[in-house]
């Protein structure tokens, strides 16, 4: 490649990662300073949304993975009915 994109540089990607982690921390810390107007008791827990978002996503990924064990097929599975009749 003649032209290297700045995202091709691993150093820059590292910096982006650090920035992302700082941002994550900031959103949680912001919970201290802002009245979060909780609608439900459970929302009063510190960092509830952060933890809830992370944990439910893990569960969804694992759930999908588990379903995949039973339901995944090679993508030629339906090739028979793709033929023009």
């Amino acid at each position: 490649m003649k032209h290297r994109h700045w995202l091709d540089d691993q150093g820059n990607v590292q910096t982006l990662w650090r920035g992302f982690l700082v941002l994550l921390a900031l959103t949680v810390v912001a919970g201290f300073f802002v009245d979060m107007h909780p609608h439900f008791e459970i929302e009063r827990w510190f960092g509830f949304n952060a933890a809830y978002g992370f944990v439910t996503c893990l569960l969804m990924i694992l759930g999908a993975k588990f379903m995949g064990f039973f339901l995944k097929r090679p993508d030629s599975h339906y090739s028979r009915d793709q033929r023009d009749e």
Binding site: F20, L23, L24, T27, V28, G31, G47, N49, A50, A51, Y52, G53, F54, C57
Partner: peptide
């Protein structure tokens, strides 16, 4: 919080 931790 929801979105960024989902990204994590």
């Amino acid at each position: 919080q929801l979105l960024l931790f989902s990204g994590l």
